[in-house]
């Protein structure tokens, strides 16, 4: 009998006995809470979850979750998780990573996991700073930003993780905000169920070294103008009074006022997660302050065969052709001779 039915799992089952070491107020706590809330509801036995991480504050995540976990080396978690998922497709394999871990040292593994569409979930806690090493610029630190390694201002342009993921061919790409708990939970739930690689960027405040990176998005006074929530099949509308929208002019997006003086709702861009190619998602990923609200939600969700499914297909075809394979026949090869 399924133990999950006998003793329904609760969030308690996913709390490990290790003391959580993140700074009080760090956005990482929010992800842990949402994951501990989500996992017992997925109908997956606890032992079938495996969390892999690299190095960084974000990467301490697996220690706090009572599942199988591996705290590995800096940037390599997507490769380790890919190997695990290919060896054990039945497991629910997750990567928790940071912006330095995933996009700097681990950039190569990150884009290739997305390209292959291995069935792993990659959650990137983007605090736009190296937290664990106490405050150096990361690949998502804004131009001109002052950090310990850029005391006179950052001269390197940042990556946008969502645009990067879409460029790498990711089949599920979403963005959520650490303080927007309900939507964070919902995006994670959808990621958990996606058949290929699911990528979620979590905008995470590091109150020690990059405090306020997302203030405009979180402050009650500004947030409704500063963010826009993506909903599949719905026009892109935002603002406290829901009186602004995004309209396309050619290939350019523009912010328009909705109303008798401005645009009609049916002129607005309608979100389509399943749009062919990554173009719409990429266009949305370009929307950023100043000038545009920051999109939150699911940019892209399309179903393509996962790497492990394609692999299983090859195995089935090979076994149909050659049978299950016999070691003695393999060793004998095709061209042997006798010495008597």
């Amino acid at each position: 009998m399924n133990p999950a039915i006998e003793h329904p799992l609760t969030r308690k089952d996913f709390e490990s006995d290790q003391a959580v070491r993140w700074c009080p107020g760090c956005g990482d706590h929010a992800l842990l809470n949402q994951i501990q809330k989500l996992l017992p509801t997925l109908g997956i036995p606890r032992e079938d979850f495996a969390f892999v991480s690299g190095i960084g504050c974000a990467s301490r995540f697996p220690y706090y979750l009572d599942t199988y976990g591996m705290h590995a080396i800096h940037g390599r978690a997507p490769a380790i998780a890919s190997g695990l998922k290919l060896a054990r497709p039945e497991l629910s394999v997750w990567v928790v990573t940071g912006d330095g871990d995933a996009l700097a040292i681990g950039g190569n593994h990150f884009i290739h996991a997305l390209r292959r569409n291995v069935g792993i979930r990659i959650v990137l806690l983007n605090n736009r700073i190296y937290g664990l090493t106490k405050g150096q610029a990361s690949p998502t630190t804004e131009l001109g930003e002052h950090t310990k390694s850029t005391p006179l201002g950052n001269v390197d342009r940042p990556f946008d993780p969502v645009a990067l993921a879409l460029g790498a061919g990711a089949t599920f790409v979403a963005r959520a905000l650490d303080t927007d708990l309900a939507r964070l939970g919902e995006v994670l739930r959808r990621a958990a169920l996606h058949p290929g690689t699911a990528f979620v960027e979590v905008l995470q405040n590091c109150n020690m070294f990059a405090d306020g990176s997302y203030r405009a998005l979180t402050d009650r006074a500004t947030r409704d103008e500063a963010r826009i929530v993506l909903e599949h099949g719905r026009p892109l509308v935002f603002g406290a009074a829901r009186d602004k929208g995004i309209r396309l002019r050619g290939l350019q997006a523009e912010v328009v006022a909705i109303g008798p003086e401005g645009a009609r709702e049916d002129e607005l861009l309608v979100h389509d997660e399943r749009a062919d190619g990554g173009a719409l998602g990429f266009l949305l990923a370009q929307l950023a302050a100043p000038g545009f609200p920051v999109p939150l939600g699911v940019f892209r969700a399309v179903e393509l065969p996962s790497c492990e499914a394609r692999h299983a297909g090859l195995v089935a075809a090979a076994q149909a052709r050659h049978g299950r394979g016999d070691l003695q026949t393999l060793l004998a090869g095709g061209n042997s001779w006798e010495i008597g």
Binding site: A79, I80, A81, H109, H112, Q319, R321
Partner: peptide
């Protein structure tokens, strides 16, 4: 040799190769 239960993973680099193998060994 896929029919003999062999999975080969041509990784993005040698680090990816060994890391994927570590993940598989864990599995």
């Amino acid at each position: 040799l896929k029919h003999l239960d062999v999975t080969t993973f041509q990784a993005e680099d040698e680090i990816g190769g060994i890391c994927a193998a570590i993940g598989a060994a864990w599995g």
